[in-house]
């Protein structure tokens, strides 16, 4: 379980996050929803200790993040995090070098699934393929927690479909996922929990299933209520 407890983050005088709290449960897909610039990425960065927070705390299975935690939790940012001069195989080798949790079999499987050529250089990849490699590098780690930042933004429809297929496959099975997005249509049916953010605060945190069953509303319905009262 990832617990985000009352975190506040300032950039200069501006408060990007102002007392944000939510939890992401094991085996669930949690979606952080909000228009661009509400601090969704900052939350993911903060969970990964890639940016300091001014107040609050974040616990992963009850513990603060340590170097060993990076074998159990990984982050797939909105762009690839490897050097442009690397080939796909180099990037995979780099991951294999440093992570014990790297699963080469799964990586090869995904190369096949995404129809990628290992010898392509990252700098020459199309946006769609780049996003797929980015996915691959994160998903091929045997981790419990996966954070994804806008996995669908700016890529073509076919790549989107392929990536969306990943979520229903065994690649994500039994893992906790926190995903941020500003357009949820592609994955609405997959989401277990939604966290609606605006102006650095959580407007609403709810279980999609419960809302659907008890109130008969979809996530988009709730979003309309919250964002356009």
């Amino acid at each position: 379980m990832i617990e985000v407890k009352d975190i506040t983050k300032r950039f200069g005088r501006k408060k990007i996050l102002n007392g944000v709290s939510f939890t992401a449960n094991k085996g669930e897909i949690t979606c952080l929803i909000g228009i661009n610039g509400v601090g969704k990425t900052t939350i993911l960065n903060a969970i990964m200790n890639l940016t300091p927070i001014n107040r609050g705390e974040i616990l992963i299975d009850g513990e603060k993040i340590r170097k060993e935690s990076y074998e159990r939790i990984t982050f797939i940012p909105d762009a690839i995090t490897m050097l442009p001069s690397m080939k796909i195989s180099d990037a995979m080798q780099f991951m294999a070098d440093f992570y014990q949790s790297w699963n080469q079999k799964r990586a090869d499987e995904m190369i096949e699934f995404f129809k990628l050529d290992k010898n392509d250089r990252l700098s020459t990849l199309s946006k769609g393929n780049s996003a797929k490699v980015n996915m691959l590098l994160g998903l091929a780690l045997d981790v419990d927690y996966l954070l994804m930042d806008e996995p669908f933004s700016g890529i073509d429809i076919f790549s989107r479909e392929q990536i969306a297929d990943v979520f229903t496959s065994h690649l994500v099975e039994n893992r906790s996922v926190i995903i941020t997005t500003h357009e949820i249509s592609d994955i609405e049916h997959l989401i277990d929990k939604a966290v609606l953010l605006n102006d650095g605060v959580v407007l609403r945190e709810f279980n999609a299933e419960e809302v659907r069953e008890n109130e008969g509303k979809s996530i988009i319905d709730v979003m309309r209520e919250v964002y356009q009262p």
Binding site: L50, K67, Y70, P77, M82, F98, Y99, L122
Partner: peptide, 17 residues
């Protein structure tokens, strides 16, 4: 800086920074 921010990867390595 540069096209890809490699620092994400470096800081997420399971090793002391």
């Amino acid at each position: 800086f540069g096209k890809n921010t490699f620092v994400y990867r470096l800081f997420m390595l399971p090793t002391a920074r």
